[in-house]
Write a protein that binds this DNA or RNA. Structure first.
Lengths: 224, 224
DNA sequence: GACTTGATGTCGGTC
DNA sequence: GACCGACGTCAAGTC
């Protein structure tokens, strides 16, 4: 990893065209040749960057400045012109052991599949990731009356998720072996507009409590 | 801006729970106190981070190690435990003059509104950002026969954009003063599945040539 | 390689 | 502050 602090201007031409006037910034070069240009604000988003795989060409100008040209396969180009270099250091970091996460949508799905009765008395699981032509339905289940239910799970329920579930329902209900299929939108938090749209389409909304679900799961583990 | 290279482990508890085992990494602290922890790959996304506004507390352990605790208002917490510090430097960057962009959707919209005939002989503009209860329609126009057309503009046309336009059309067609309203999906690039869905719903698709539109505009400017 | 979906998305504008 | 849509979204998984 190489850290350069320099007064620089930046030009990007690719998916859009962008320009940064001359100013002091951090230029970060990683082991995979990716480059990012940071100002002293915004948690982590750089002002400009080039994702790997890409190539970095360094040139020196007559007056001691530097010009870096970063190019990727699709022809996107990032040009960094450095007027004055204030710091330049390189560091060997090695490969990172990687991040361990807990609490993402996949976990919600696992927990809910294991506790279908959270959704309603007597509900059972048909299967998780039920495959369809337009992608897998998060959970396909059965309610107490034997009716089929398609469940879409989100951490945060927004309009997109309702649209997604609607497409699944439309498709599933064309299958005479399955129809009628009810829809259920389950999320830790459901935005008002998403709830309105879902309700308008006859889709039931349920908010999930991750900690409670995990607690139930822990209780189960303690029992067996 | 402060740059620290250190062997560290990281724990995050907030919107999810995450852990990073001890390894050498870059810890970046910006002027707004935001912190990000980078490995030596992935263009700009850190392994872990805390967005501003947040507070950073530094402590030293008996064996010369450091523990940083970063907390934000909503109670999210990031704990960085440094076993060995390999580099530590601070740099004054000042406020960045900011990025100048060109070629985004807004610009496409301006160009197209100014050249409605690109969409069809005799087409005219009613207005840009036509307001509706569920958000503004990019362009509302009139075709050669006087029929109303709602235009949704995207840089890249995907399914989401078709769904969005469909919602607008549904709403607009409930208004007897406007109905019938045709739909037109215009983008620099239209994904096959989006095109299929649009066509299936009777929405016409048009791919836009940004350079050509800008060229036409330049010609116009030269004339007047 | 195209397509889909999730994300600690982030960011900016509006109400 | 909530909500909503755009993003050079990115990144991972599937087909």
């Amino acid at each position: 990893m190489r850290l350069v602090i320099a007064r620089c201007s930046v030009d990007y031409a690719g998916r859009l065209t962008a320009h940064l006037p001359m100013a002091p910034r951090l230029v970060l070069v990683k082991a995979d040749n990716s480059v990012s240009v940071h100002a002293d604000d915004r948690a982590y988003k750089p002002l400009n960057w080039m994702s790997p795989p890409c190539t970095l060409k360094e040139e020196e100008t007559e007056d001691g400045g530097r010009v870096w040209t970063v190019v990727n396969k699709t022809g996107e180009k990032l040009i960094i012109t450095m007027e004055e270099v204030l710091h330049d250091s390189s560091h060997e970091l090695g490969v990172d052991p990687g991040l361990i996460k807990d609490g993402v949508e996949a976990h919600l799905q696992e927990l809910l599949a294991d506790r279908m009765e959270t959704l309603g008395e007597g509900w059972t699981l048909i299967r998780r990731e039920y495959p369809t032509a337009i992608g897998p339905v998060d959970i396909l289940g059965r309610d107490a009356d034997g009716g089929t239910v398609a469940v879409e799970i989100k951490r945060r329920g927004e309009i997109d998720g309702v649209e997604q579930l609607t497409r699944y329902l439309e498709l599933l209900n064309r299958d005479p072996h399955l129809a009628p299929v009810q829809g259920l939108f389950a999320a830790q938090e459901i935005k008002p507009q998403a709830r309105t749209l879902a309700t308008d389409r006859g889709i039931r909304c349920v908010t999930l409590d991750y900690d409670a679900l995990r607690g139930i799961e822990d209780d189960k583990l303690r029992l067996f």
